[in-house]
Design a protein around this nucleic acid. Structure first.
Length: 281
DNA sequence: GATCTTGACGATATTACTTCA
DNA sequence: AATGAAGTAATATCGTCAAGA
């Protein structure tokens, strides 16, 4: 038994095979691995047609068609897997993918070459994007089908989905961070405003103690400008705000505002609340 | 030349399944 | 026959690199 390796541009004749056979890779670099029996061994066989196995790794060349006396390396489990009849698909699928990639004449790329035009191609990218929108993960069958449809290796489809998931997640994380940052800034500003308001109210309360005899007053906030003021509950209240700015919503009392004169409350939101808020906006 | 995008891959974790004592 | 440990394969995420735009 002999194992022959051939690498290069020139046509190679494998010594232990039919001397007339030339493996022609044309102008492209090629890699050919052949397993067969030596001449002496072959002579003892009635038929040697089953004894020579050749594996061609010529990523950019069509498979030579003139090799009638050779058996192309055939992986019986490939068809089993592709037709879904194999009892143990998972265990074999990685082998299958690689094997398909090696043996498929339509296989475009190889790991030696990174051709951005493959995925930059409009149709391929569109197909990927549409599939990804439907579901971000593919089962082995879908992966093989998509690869076949796009003339790519299943491994390439797999990698594309992996990268897409990772980068989508990264982008989403960045968006979430931005949103949370904005929430934080808004709440900080709101907190600052409320603290100022609280100080005003405390000052107001102190001053009111000096005028206990005066008629009862109501704390009112203008819904437009959000200024707080005290107004007498009498007819004077009606004149507290100019009609153009404040009449529509009416005044808001300290009680129905939910304000307390205690220490300002710190706001905190759960992620669910943040998401709900974002969805609403 | 710096930056961004994207295909590819290694390391690692998890899960499902098989084998074996 | 049931069971748990060990082994294996597939696949996910994460981090990173490298090449092209």
């Amino acid at each position: 038994m002999e194992l022959a390796l051939s690498l290069g541009e020139t046509p190679k004749a494998i010594t232990f095979l039919d001397k007339s056979l030339k493996v022609d890779f044309g102008n492209d670099l090629g890699f050919c691995m052949t397993l067969g029996e030596s001449g002496a061994e072959a002579k003892t066989k009635a038929s040697d047609s089953d004894l020579h196995i050749q594996l061609d790794l010529t990523p950019f060349s069509p498979v030579p068609r003139s090799q009638t006396s050779l058996n192309k390396l055939h992986f019986s489990w490939i068809t089993e897997n592709l037709t879904g009849e194999s009892g143990n698909v998972n265990k074999r699928s990685r082998w299958v993918e690689d094997s398909v990639a090696i043996s498929s004449p339509n296989s475009i790329g190889s790991s030696f070459q990174m051709d951005f035009s493959i995925y930059g191609n409009g149709r391929v990218k569109r197909e990927f994007e549409e599939n990804f929108r439907e579901q971000s993960t593919l089962n082995p069958k879908q992966k093989v089908a998509l690869a076949k449809q796009l003339n790519l290796r299943p491994r390439q489809v797999e990698v594309w989905f992996q990268n897409r998931r990772a980068r989508t997640k990264l982008k989403q994380t960045q968006v979430d961070c931005e949103y949370i940052k904005k929430c934080y800034e808004t709440l900080t500003e709101e907190n600052r405003r409320l603290q100022n308001e609280l100080q005003e109210l405390r000052a107001l309360k102190t001053s009111q103690l000096l005028y206990m005899q005066l008629p009862a007053t109501t704390l009112s906030m203008c819904p437009s400008c959000e200024r707080v003021s005290t107004t007498a509950t009498t007819a004077a209240a009606a004149a507290a705000y100019p009609t153009t700015a404040c009449a529509s919503a009416g005044g808001m009392t300290s009680s129905n505002m939910g304000l307390s004169l205690a220490e300002p409350k710190l706001f905190s939101f759960s992620p669910a609340q943040i998401h709900a808020q974002r969805a609403a906006s």
